[in-house]
Computed example of a mutant assay.
Amino acid sequence: MDDVTQLLALHTAGDKSALDRLLPLVYEELRRLARAYLSRERDGHTLQPTALVHEAYMRLIGQQTVDWSNRAQFLGVAASMMRRVLVNYAEARNAARRDSSGVLPDPGAAAVSDRQMVDILTLDQALSRLKDVDPRQMQIVELRYFAGLSIEETAEALNLSVATVKREWAVARLWVRRELAGSPAG
């Protein structure tokens, strides 16, 4: 086990100080995730990577029911938290301006040009619908696209075979692509 996994296990076992020791070990990875997220956002986005990391981390440490098992799972949950922060930010911006918000590339990169952009709120709605249809596929999209995990890391985080993740990832990408193509912003 690496240090991150050991600290997550200690936290799950009740050691509250484990999270304080965890942050320095994962901070640069979380900043990398935040920079990747924000690089996909509209130009002039006012949220900075450090603020996104801090907001997501505060939400992470507030999780009471997560049974942390490994680094990949932690990064997947962190990516999900960052997505929620950005969605909340976009919703607040929309409410204030009654205008469309930031953009994010389509996760079906193999099926759609990287230049095609999708409103983050539209993407979030598509992923919410995917969760209703197939929660595991939605988790795979979050881990692969948002956390940047490899097929192997995703399989480990979800306790699935590599073949299953490959198959589900292919189906989920096509499903999301179809949903986005049918949306007004897509």
Rank of each mutant, 00 (worst) to 15 (best):
F146M: 02
T164L: 03
A170P: 03
T154I: 01
L75P: 01
R178C: 00
L121Q: 07
Q73Y: 02
S100T: 14
L25Q: 09
K166F: 01
T5A: 14
A51Y: 07
I140P: 08
D15Y: 11
V171R: 14
M81F: 04
V103Q: 13
E29K: 13
I151Q: 01
V85A: 03
P24R: 06
Q137D: 11
V53K: 06
T5K: 11
Y37F: 15
V133L: 13
R32E: 00
L121W: 09
S113P: 09
S128I: 15
A110C: 10
A163Y: 04
A155P: 10
R97F: 10
L23Q: 11
M82L: 00
A126V: 14
K131Q: 14
G76D: 05
Q139S: 14
G62R: 08
H11D: 02
P107K: 11
R35D: 06
Q48S: 12
S69R: 09
E28T: 05
A109S: 12
D106M: 09
L33R: 08
G186A: 07
V26I: 07
R59I: 08
V176L: 07
Y37E: 08
L127W: 07
L86D: 00
L19R: 10
L127A: 09
D43T: 11
L158M: 00
Q48T: 12
V4S: 09
A79N: 02
A163D: 04
Y57R: 05
D132I: 12
G44P: 12
N159F: 00
S113I: 07
D15K: 13
L38N: 08
D2Q: 06
D106E: 14
M1A: 13
L52T: 08
L149F: 02
Y89T: 03
D114I: 12
S183A: 15
G62P: 04
G108C: 15
Q6M: 11
Y37N: 05
A51W: 07
L60I: 09
R59Q: 14
Q139I: 04
M1I: 02
R84Y: 05
A78R: 03
L174K: 02
E28S: 06
A92W: 01
E179R: 12
T12N: 07
G182K: 13
K16V: 13
L22I: 04
L86K: 00
S69F: 04
K166E: 04
V141R: 02
S39Y: 12
I151D: 02
S17F: 10
L127S: 11
S100H: 13
R173L: 02
E29W: 03
A34V: 02
R98S: 14
K131H: 15
H11C: 10
E142D: 11
I151C: 03
D132K: 15
E28F: 05
R32G: 05
N70H: 04
V66P: 05
M138D: 13
Y57N: 03
Q73E: 11
V103I: 14
A110F: 07
L86H: 00
T12L: 00
R42A: 15
G76H: 05
S39I: 01
A36I: 04
G148W: 05
Q137E: 15
W169H: 13
